[in-house]
């Protein structure tokens, strides 16, 4: 069954904000666990959240992680949070 977008968005934002004090970047698997969905279903929602600017990618070059837009040290530190 396809995930409901608004409901999923709420789940993700709430879960990520709750952990924001200790963690600002999450693996894709962490997000699909929050959604309790199979990776391919979760991907559709997560893509849309990135498109809408709710989430943003962080990449080390070898691994990619996700975070709420503007959260975390790097956005400010490298003057790229605008």
């Amino acid at each position: 069954m396809a995930l409901d977008y608004e409901e999923s968005k709420e789940k993700i934002v709430e879960a990520l904000q709750k952990k924001a004090k200790t963690k600002s970047k999450f693996y894709f698997n962490d997000l699909s666990k929050i959604l309790e969905a199979k990776p391919r279903e979760a991907k559709k929602v997560i893509n849309k959240l990135v498109e809408e600017g709710v989430l943003e990618y962080w990449s080390s070059g070898s691994t990619t992680m996700y975070g709420l837009k503007g959260m975390g040290k790097q956005a400010g530190a490298e003057h790229e949070g605008e």
Partner: peptide
């Protein structure tokens, strides 16, 4: 330092931040 939030819109790869 490597890694970052740089990228082009809609793409999660292809750009690697270097500082």
């Amino acid at each position: 330092k490597h890694g970052g939030i740089v990228g082009v819109f809609g793409y999660g790869g292809g750009v690697i931040g270097r500082y």
